[in-house]
């Protein structure tokens, strides 16, 4: 038997429907493919824009910072508020923070440009201050020791600036703010503008009196005296510490944990007991 030669109207209609469907599907697939291609191009465009934005931010931030850490605007307010909440209300005398009759004295030898000192100042120190200094058990004496600062003259200038604030019993504000706003090591960020900017942040500091005090040779001598004590103790790195009962022999505090107060607490509690 041969198949019927004439067109089967039913089959033809079905075929036409199939053909129309496949054509429609092909068109839909082409449209979907085109749309997908368009979306991929858009995605690529967005990624390109994002990359450009990030490059601009990186270039702007690296060019603008040039190693300087002096805070401005709201960050400055935030830093000053943090420092104030830490030490406000605690007596200061020169380079000493704490009540004069505190039974234990901790001597902190630091270089204001030393990043490890910053680690301690922002790490273990606040807890020691809150727990022992604010409660009158410990007083902390800040002494200088040049380690991270490149130029001896810069070291002396910045340290004298801190001690000069001590003439108004505000040295610890200056020291804390310096560490909080410390710049990139060896970037030469400590300029006269930097020191003036820090001084302006110290709450209640009389700037003309502070400027006058910076010329007092007593503070330069104090820096020399600090170096002599450090040498006598054999200190070569910062931060270094001496601790003991106030007015008595001071012992070295060897390798304390700078980020956690536990090593300081153990020694202080022993001296207090």
């Amino acid at each position: 038997m041969t198949p019927p030669s004439g067109p089967d109207p039913d089959l033809t209609r079905k075929e036409r429907r199939e053909q129309a469907r496949s054509e429609r599907k092909a068109m839909e697939a082409a449209a979907a493919q085109s749309a997908q291609r368009k979306r991929l191009i858009q995605l690529g465009g967005v990624i390109g824009v994002v990359v450009v934005i990030i490059i601009v931010i990186v270039v702007a931030s690296s060019g603008g910072s040039s190693g300087g850490g002096l805070a401005t605007g709201s960050k400055k307010n935030s830093t000053v508020a943090t420092v104030t909440s830490l030490i406000h209300g605690i007596p200061q005398s020169g380079n000493v923070l704490g009540y004069p009759n505190a039974p234990v004295t901790l001597q902190y030898f630091g270089d204001l440009e030393c990043p490890i000192c910053r680690e301690f100042t922002l790490g273990a120190l606040p807890k020691v201050i809150q727990k022992y200094v604010r409660t009158g058990k410990v007083k902390i004496e800040y002494n200088s020791l040049e380690t991270a600062t490149d130029e001896q003259e810069t070291f002396r200038t910045q340290q004298v600036a801190a001690y000069a604030a001590g003439k108004q019993n505000l040295a610890w504000y200056f020291i804390e703010l310096f560490y909080h706003e410390q710049g990139q090591e060896k970037s030469g960020y400590v300029t006269e503008n930097y020191l003036q900017g820090l001084a302006q942040q110290v709450p209640g500091l009389n700037l003309p009196n502070w400027s006058a005090a910076r010329n007092d040779p007593a503070y330069a001598e104090q820096v020399t005296h600090d170096a002599q004590i450090a040498n006598a103790e054999g200190f070569t790195g910062t931060p270094s510490f001496l601790i003991g009962k106030s007015g008595q022999h001071m012992e070295k505090l060897e390798n304390p944990n700078l980020e956690e107060p536990s090593s300081f607490e153990a020694t202080i509690n022993k001296l207090l007991s």
């Binding site: 931010i57 702007a60 931030s61 603008g64 910072s65 850490g69 805070a71 401005t72 605007g73 709201s74 960050k75 935030s78 830093t79 943090t82 909080h180 710049g183």
Partner: peptide
Amino acid sequence: QTSIYSELAGVP
């Protein structure tokens, strides 16, 4: 939060 990277052009 208090580092130099906590602000961009003065904006936190």
